[in-house]
């Protein structure tokens, strides 16, 4: 009997060791692959690739692990698709992906309410709603403000939270409390926070650094004192090194710099 017991314990230890020694679980491997694909697709504004990577995450849900995080990425893919629709002024698709994204990110929040990034995404989705349902302005504003407050409460120094605030200020006219002057310190703060940011896990979201640098570069290009093209160029170069595939940096921000330089 004693022999059988020792035998069983050692057998279990051996199996346990065998499993622990695996570098990544199927879930982690699938997540990292899908996350990489989504990032590439979003960097390239490639709608069909975003749809594909959204599908990858949907399939990962079948593994029933960290479904709140998987849902976060599905919502992030929806956000990418919504932004693509917005750039094409396709309000039907914008509504479709925004509403899907809000439903999915709320599912994620219901499961794990302490993840600040989820609220950052929820707030961003609510900004989209202005494009197609201004009639629900009270609803939109209160939903945005609640998401903002929750993100701030959970992680006031989350660089993506600061980034979304900075972008909002960037697009708000100066006369109404926004503008480049207001946005610059916010975006600079986001850039600084990204420098020291270490995500808890490789599975966690890490997007936004290029956007923060890009928008800050846009501030330097467009500010009233004829801009600081040198500083803008430095930021673009730094962002390009960090995110070589970012079309936002290589095409849009760089294009703006060239336009400003040719004036």
């Amino acid at each position: 009997m004693k022999t059988k017991l020792i035998y069983s314990i050692l057998l279990l230890i051996t199996f346990a060791f065998t499993n622990i020694s695996l570098p990544e679980s199927d879930f982690e491997k699938a997540m990292l692959k899908a996350k990489k694909n989504l990032k590439t697709a979003m960097d390239n504004y490639d709608e069909s690739e975003i749809i594909k990577s959204r599908g990858q995450f949907e399939r990962i849900l079948q593994l029933k692990e960290k479904t709140w995080l998987v849902n976060y990425y599905i919502a992030l893919a929806d956000y990418g698709l919504a932004m693509s629709a917005m750039s094409k002024q396709d309000n039907d698709k914008l509504k479709k992906y925004t509403e899907s994204g809000i439903a999915v990110i709320n599912k994620s929040i219901d499961e794990y309410p302490d993840f600040a990034d989820s609220y950052v995404l929820l707030e961003s989705f609510n900004f989209n709603r202005w494009q197609y349902e201004q009639d629900k302005m009270q609803d939109i504003i209160s939903a945005s403000q609640s998401a903002d407050a929750e993100a701030k409460r959970l992680e006031p120094d989350n660089p993506r939270y600061i980034l979304v605030t900075g972008i909002s200020q960037f697009y708000t006219p100066e006369a109404f409390g926004g503008g480049i002057k207001t946005a610059m310190p916010t975006l600079q703060k986001s850039v600084d926070l990204f420098k020291t940011r270490k995500e808890k896990s490789d599975l966690y979201p890490d997007w936004g650094n290029d956007l923060a640098m890009g928008y800050l570069a846009l501030c330097y290009i467009n500010r009233n004192d004829d801009g600081d093209m040198v500083k803008a160029k430095e930021l673009i170069d730094e962002a390009s090194k960090l995110e070589p595939d970012s079309k936002f940096i290589s095409n849009y921000v760089n294009g703006e710099l060239k336009k400003a330089g040719s004036k």
């Binding site: 199927d26 699938a30 069909s48 749809i51 594909k52 959204r54 599908g55 990858q56 949907e58 399939r59 990962i60 079948q62 593994l63």
Partner: peptide
């Protein structure tokens, strides 16, 4: 376009 197919309990599937 974009329909997701998956075999239940696995990640085998496609879009």
């Amino acid at each position: 376009n974009g329909a997701n197919l998956v075999i239940e309990g696995t990640i085998d599937g496609a879009t």
